[in-house]
Design a protein around this nucleic acid. Structure first.
Lengths: 207, 207, 207, 207
DNA sequence: ACATAATCGAGACGGTACGTCCCGTCTTGTT
DNA sequence: AACAAGACGGGACGTACCGTCTCGATTATGT
């Protein structure tokens, strides 16, 4: 994603090579600032340079614009294992939602989530990257759980996996963001999964 | 929300009263700019003043703060009838989701939704206002539909209304934002409602 | 000089008459501010209004611009007895220069002199007024002294009165403003008058 | 006089050095504007920046203060050789006064003279600088002429040089500013010098 | 070893927007 | 009417960053 990066395999050109230390400290400074709640718009190159102990030129030489830098910075974040599984479909889903919920309670993660959510409309590449790095891997994990559930007969054979996924993931985001009371969050994953599994309509066999 | 606004019922203060025309043109200019995809951070008071044909002072006299202005501007937006109802629970929910989906396809609405979503973490008052003006009214409408469904026996008696609501609303947002393909959006409301109503698990009576 | 003043002799028009108290307090506030060293450019109508306890409108209704007001304000200043005479020409001139010198040592007079000197190029009407009110009367006094000196034979019959006047008055201003040392100012009037009377060239009869 | 100027002999500070071209164009723009009759108070930093094709920052980086800038700008003005001499005392003085008179007829010089005269009370540093750059050098020239006159016997041995100087210089300023008629200016230098040399009193040997 | 050359930190450059102050005009209700 | 109060559109203030551009100093490589 570095727009002006020297080609990897090319013969090392003459002159002083770029400092990897600078690379790292720039990325780290960027993540720190984002993690402190500073949005992409408020994030200034000058503040990054100052925090990283680096000249502005050193940043602009590597990234032609701020969003590119943010994209690269987010890319270095390893999705911190959102995928434990192996039990019943219900247990796997609850575990998964609990991971998401737990992430959202961390300052840094929440800020970065927020950036991904918020600045994505105005910076399509950011959205694309975020989808690629975070959304898709997680979607795949849950989709696998759901597919396994269908195979084992735990779930309906004609379940619309995309929609099921949206119901689960959307609900977490929605409740995290707009829940009326912050209190009953403890068993939220269970409640969501149970409602989703059962459906809204009464079942004749469950009085 | 105007920070320096004269109390409503108080005796008219001395001097020339503030121009309501200026009020309106400032709000309108703000909404126009937001509707053109300019984010809260990029939104400059000077551009608002210029577009509204107004001095900067006239804005600062009313709002001490850009966010306050945006909050007031959003407050003037009437939620454009999100509440059709009367048929079966399924029909009402589908209609409701369709309204939301339709809104999201309009440039202006989408920009403003985006602002509400994105800048809310950094500007709590914005979030609060958005919840109050948009989220809560809609939540109430859907909650009413669900309660009626429970009464008529269309829905389970022990349905967790908050969670049900989150499942439905969250799914729409999620799919609008992260859907892999933009193509199959046409029958999205039906698919979501049906999956939610049926639940993920197979029903013995529906082979 | 009041540009929008109602004609003196005209039938008193209807409505509330202009407050003479306001007139006075505006003029007084103006002179106070000028006397405090505020120049015409720095002098703001707002500060005058505030100091006079008057609305800005009340000032603009009387004077269409700031210079007009200053002109009128200066016009109310009576030249404080610049004309003592009766003795020898030398004594009269020394007395006169001493008055000028004494004036220049007063804060308020010096500020106003300064205004007259400084802003006159940029505001011709101010210069004109100052000449009319201050320069000409004084010139006339000194000219009278000089003419009397010629008559009595104390001065040369072919003395160029304009130039003589310029030499005397100019010297005072020059020395007040640019004198290298502020110390020997006590007998300045005598020194100036004596040099001017004697001329620079040696006299055969005064060895 | 530049408030934040790097010490001359000091080691070159880090970073890009200040542009001398910017220095020059700022000074030149300032002088142009002053020469067009704009006073120090009316002179806006923004207009200087715009005319000089320079950012406001570039001005503020060099001068913390408008007056400091004007002082430096005036300092670049070389007094355009006011000192021709060699003939009789009378000829030298007439020539000198003629130079001053001629200067006063030029738009730019008159404006700048005016600034020096007018804003000097309010801006002491401006007065000081003007005295140092313009008044003193000229005073010295005339003083030299007078001293030579005393040596050659053309002038009285006990002539008060300071006062003589004030009489001559003051008279020019006075007449330039307050002369009743602008017509008879042509032989003004001669008239002033002759009156000053002869003195006001009649000489027994000149009937 | 040493010239070549790309990089480094630093900071000046022309700009844009900030939020404040005051301009001279205008619009209220009161006198 | 004239008054005080004060809002109006506008323009300049001095500051903070923007993204670009020079500087002298540093650090590799290819003779």
């Amino acid at each position: 994603m570095k727009t002006q990066q020297t080609a990897e395999g090319a013969a090392r050109s003459a002159g002083r090579p770029r400092s990897e230390k600078a690379d790292r400290s720039i990325i780290e400074a960027t993540l720190e600032l984002l993690g402190e709640g500073i949005g992409v718009s408020e994030l200034s190159i000058e503040s990054i340079a100052s925090r990283a102990g680096v000249g502005k030129t050193t940043i602009y030489r590597r990234w032609s614009n701020k969003v590119d830098l943010v994209v690269d910075a987010l890319a270095t974040l390893k999705p911190p294992i959102p995928l434990p599984q192996g039990g019943t479909v219900r247990d796997d889903l609850v575990t998964y939602l609990r991971v998401i919920q737990e992430e959202a309670s961390h300052q840094r993660t929440r800020c970065i989530m927020n950036i991904a959510m918020s600045d994505s409309e105005r910076h399509p590449r950011l959205a694309e990257r975020f989808r690629e790095l975070t959304v898709e891997p997680r979607r795949e994990v849950v989709a696998a759980v759901l597919r396994r559930g269908i195979e084992t007969g735990e779930l309906r054979a004609d379940l619309d996996i995309d929609v099921a996924l949206a119901l689960l993931s959307g609900a977490v985001i929605w409740l995290t963001k707009w829940s009326r009371s912050g209190d009953s969050d403890a068993d939220l994953p269970e409640r969501i999964v149970d409602e989703a599994l059962k459906g809204f309509r009464p079942r004749p066999d469950e009085p």
